[in-house]
């Protein structure tokens, strides 16, 4: 095989080899549980610090609204964020109000409650410490209405309890009564609608927890209209690292202190190796491209002469 043939082959590697290497890059780190502790970026720290200091800021038990605007395809990125945010909010004794602008979002909220909130924090009571409004269609229109009145759209919660029967709704009329809005968003309706129709109109601070694909589109809102942002798996792992660092060591509950429970940190192993495989193929492709381009140029010169 001549060098020309070799580099030509390098430029057109069968994509099944790429698929195989990506599979291995994901499976091996998952099997051996490679994980790293992440250093938090300012966007991530902003959310963590806000949740930490909110009680002091508002002078009473803080009320936080979390909107689950995603579905299973975005779950690997957004679910680790949802879990660690819920853990952090509970540890900081926030009242948590959950809702969804996406139909499947309600199921995602229920999964977090069933699999993490209820077993890890049995002292947290439904209706007093947390509640789920459920899904309602409307997107921006829905936010527009709850800016003035939650009860216009939600007469009952997702469990069919009348809203007024829940103690934590006694002093809540509209979105102005919230102290913090966190949106787990995978598209539209999502964080853009929360910023434009929720945060901007009420002045309630909004933070977005978005997929890595969506993150670049949201930077224009940061930091004035959106005080913090978790973008993709890396940010999820960074947030988990912050929670783990602050509360993991001193917690008696092995479910909180064990690294294995933190999905983002565990999933950063496969992501790191998959990125490296992609980088490797980009480098190989470019070396082969330049090598064959040089040879093509040389052969053209020979023909011309």
């Amino acid at each position: 095989m001549t060098s020309r043939e070799f580099f030509d082959k390098m430029q057109t590697i069968d994509r099944r080899w790429i698929f195989l290497l990506i599979s291995l890059a994901v499976i091996i780190p998952l099997l051996f549980e490679f994980s790293f502790t992440e250093l938090a970026t300012p966007e991530v720290s902003a959310i963590y610090n806000r949740i930490e200091g909110l009680q002091q800021e508002v002078g009473r038990r803080p009320r936080t609204l979390i909107s689950f605007d995603f579905d299973p395809p975005s779950e690997p990125e957004l679910m680790p964020m949802a879990i660690s945010l819920i853990r952090h909010l509970v540890i900081r004794n926030h009242q948590i109000y959950m809702m969804a602008l996406w139909p499947i979002g309600q199921q995602e909220a229920d999964d977090v409650v069933r699999q993490y909130l209820e077993p890890e924090f049995p002292q947290y009571t439904y209706g007093e410490d947390y509640m789920t409004f459920g899904f309602q269609p409307g997107g921006a229109g829905l936010i527009n209405v709850i800016v003035n009145d939650f009860r216009k759209f939600f007469s009952v919660d997702s469990r069919n309890n009348p809203i007024d029967s829940l103690p934590m709704m006694a002093d809540v009329v509209n979105l102005f009564d919230m102290d913090l809005i966190l949106d787990l968003s995978a598209g539209a309706p999502g964080i853009k609608e929360w910023v434009q129709f929720g945060g901007d109109r009420t002045g309630v601070p909004v933070a977005g927890c978005v997929t890595a694909v969506q993150a670049p589109l949201m930077y224009p809102y940061y930091p004035r209209q959106m005080f913090g942002m978790l973008g993709g798996m890396k940010a999820a792992a960074e947030y988990e690292s912050l929670v783990l660092e602050a509360y993991g060591a001193e917690s008696d509950d092995p479910r909180i202190s064990a690294d294995a429970r933190f999905l983002g940190i565990r999933r950063m192993g496969p992501q790191t190796f998959a990125h490296l495989v992609i980088i490797l193929f980009i480098i190989i492709g470019n070396i082969a491209f330049f090598a064959t381009r040089g040879q093509r140029g040389a052969s053209r010169l020979t023909v011309d002469s």
Binding site: R15, F19, V26, P73, P76, I278
Partner: peptide, 24 residues
């Protein structure tokens, strides 16, 4: 599972497309 499977396939196609598209 169906939605997750569909989305997971993207990782493979993104890797293959990056290799072919990102040439200087």
């Amino acid at each position: 599972p169906l939605q997750s499977t569909m989305f997971a396939l993207l990782a493979f196609y993104v890797a293959s497309a990056s290799y072919r598209a990102f040439r200087a």
